[in-house]
Amino acid sequence: MFKRLMMVALLVIAPLSAATAADQTNPYKLMDEAAQKTFDRLKNEQPQIRANPDYLRTIVDQELLPYVQVKYAGALVLGQYYKSATPAQREAYFAAFREYLKQAYGQALAMYHGQTYQIAPEQPLGDKTIVPIRVTIIDPNGRPPVRLDFQWRKNSQTGNWQAYDMIAEGVSMITTKQNEWGTLLRTKGIDGLTAQLKSISQQKITLEEKK
């Protein structure tokens, strides 16, 4: 169930391209415009997507990853294993993690069937560096609404905000991946996880038929 919630949630996290980005210092504006741009692209490019579902990787690479804190999220997933990894191991892992996100997020976007969304009203940021933004996803086919909290983090150097995690039903996506990959990290280390991520990233994206 959580895996499905995570995939549905990713439908609204794909941010804007650099040329049309919203105010990078306001995570609420980023979330709002990102959702609108993403849904528009999914709707307008269905012919290309249906002809070649792996085209979704391109959308992810162009529109999402430049505005997601990939390395920060990847380091959180590694936890204690990050500090013990060599620079070469980290570089290989982050490259594999990025390719994994292209496949995983692309597969999530393949679930698009006309969903709509509501974003919580903007709250004062103050001096906060981590801000959760509640998004409610509404399914046109009558499924119950899904309420999610996207975690946005302020870059201490640039002042810009980027998304790095999502919490559904009190469970963090980062925590879920830590639990899912924990045994592999304990037995085969970061190299074993890197190899698995490379394998997963090679899987073809498949479209979910409308139910």
Rank of each mutant, 00 (worst) to 15 (best):
E33A: 09
G106C: 13
K210V: 10
T158P: 01
Q62K: 12
T86Y: 07
A96Q: 10
M1H: 00
Q89E: 09
V146I: 06
V77T: 09
R57D: 13
L56G: 07
Y81S: 07
K83P: 05
R143N: 03
A73T: 04
H113Q: 10
G126C: 08
R90T: 04
L30N: 05
T20A: 10
D165P: 00
A18T: 14
L42H: 02
E180Q: 03
N155L: 01
M173V: 05
G170H: 06
V68L: 15
A34V: 11
V171H: 00
P140I: 13
N26F: 10
L207C: 08
P124N: 08
G106F: 03
I13T: 05
D165W: 00
K204R: 07
Y93M: 04
I13F: 12
K177Q: 15
D40H: 14
P121N: 13
Q118G: 09
N52V: 05
A51L: 14
Q202A: 08
M6Y: 05
G189R: 07
K37S: 07
K128Y: 10
G79W: 00
A75R: 00
F39D: 01
A104C: 08
A21D: 06
V12P: 00
T25C: 12
L185T: 14
I167P: 06
A35P: 02
D127S: 06
D54R: 06
V12A: 05
V70D: 10
A92Y: 06
T136D: 04
Y100L: 09
E91H: 05
G159W: 09
V131F: 06
L5F: 11
G189C: 04
V146N: 04
N52G: 03
N44F: 09
T175K: 03
M31R: 00
E208I: 13
Q123L: 12
Q203P: 08
T136Q: 14
Y100R: 01
N160L: 07
V60D: 02
G114F: 12
Q80H: 09
D127T: 10
P121K: 10
D40G: 15
Q162L: 05
G159Y: 08
P15D: 08
M166G: 06
L30P: 07
M111W: 09
A18D: 15
V12G: 03
P66K: 03
T187S: 11
D191H: 06
G182T: 13
F2I: 09
Q118T: 12
E169Y: 00
E91P: 03
P132R: 04
R134C: 07
L42Y: 10
A104K: 01
Q80D: 00
Y93L: 04
S199E: 13
V77F: 09
P132V: 12
N44C: 14
L76A: 01
E45P: 02
D61I: 02
R147A: 02
T20C: 13
P27F: 04
K37N: 12
Q178G: 07
Y100F: 14
I138T: 08
R4T: 13
Q115T: 03
R90C: 04
A19D: 00
I49E: 06
Y105F: 03
A88T: 07
G192I: 12
Q123P: 08
D40S: 14
A92W: 08
D165F: 00
G170N: 01
Q46P: 05
